[in-house]
Design a protein around this nucleic acid. Structure first.
Length: 240
DNA sequence: TTCCGGTCAT
DNA sequence: ATGACCGGAA
């Protein structure tokens, strides 16, 4: 029966198999990332709270807006709407005015609708279940993972542009990163140290924003140097 | 002027 | 799979 034997669980059309994450690679990446984060992690306002509502507001703002622009609006928004109940009661037109000028103005509408639904159907408590979170308009896979890890301390994976870039460079280094999201989601999940989803996810995003940057990453001071499949990153070959 | 980005819709 | 959304940055 040799001809009928199947190679163990592999997608029929892709040839490259998952990037063989060895236990040693995994452990080193985790330890170095968390150590780096302890020394260099940013002190962001939404890391000082455990209120799921505050975390949600920050994550929706951060969906397409940079940290520096979000910070002042985060404070202003929460001053005006300190809870799901306050936000749910507010006219959506006011919420949109408060949102200005962050842009992508569907976001305040969706945030408002999430608040209404949370008050009406969940007694003002944001659910921690992935399926329920994903059922809200405005919460996609990234934000659901962010809420679960940052607001509920679950070991839930996240994958945004920072995480895609970091994981692809360190562990894959071939092909178009955006075309490999399925593998990268698996990596993001497999790498989380048990019980440390919050710190690990915050850490990998800081790392992507501060060291493993899109252009001109700081490879010389990078703690992943010795395990990174892309080191040393050649900026010239990456520019057009 | 072009590129980028989470989510949703096509 | 691809584009709309909207504004910032290269």
């Amino acid at each position: 029966m040799p001809s009928s034997s199947k190679s163990p669980r592999r997608k029929t059309r892709s040839k490259a198999q998952s990037p063989a994450l060895t236990p040693s690679q995994k452990r080193r990446f985790q330890q170095r990332l968390l150590k780096w984060y302890g020394e260099h992690g940013r002190d962001l306002p939404w890391r000082k709270t455990s209120d799921p509502y505050h975390i949600l507001v920050s994550e929706v703002m951060l969906q397409q807006t940079q940290v520096d622009r979000v910070i002042p609006k985060y404070h202003e928004f929460l001053d005006r709407y300190p809870s799901f109940e306050h936000l749910a009661e507010a006219p959506v037109a006011d919420v949109k005015k408060t949102w200005y000028p962050l842009g992508y103005n569907i976001r305040p509408e969706r945030l408002h609708s999430i608040a209404c639904e949370t008050v009406e159907r969940y007694g003002g408590q944001l659910p921690n279940d992935a399926e329920e979170l994903l059922s809200f308009k405005g919460i996609g896979r990234y934000t659901a993972g962010a809420i679960r890890s940052f607001a509920f301390n679950e070991d839930a994976p996240i994958l945004d542009t920072n995480v895609i870039r970091v994981l692809h460079r360190v562990f894959i280094a071939e092909g178009d990163p955006k075309a490999q999201k399925a593998q990268l989601w698996e990596l993001s999940e497999a790498l989380i140290p048990r019980g440390k989803g919050y710190d690990f996810n915050q850490a990998i995003m800081d790392f992507g924003a501060m060291v493993c940057t899109a252009r001109d990453p700081y490879c010389l001071l990078c703690p992943m140097k010795s395990i990174c499949k892309t080191y040393p990153f050649d900026a010239a070959s990456n520019r057009k």
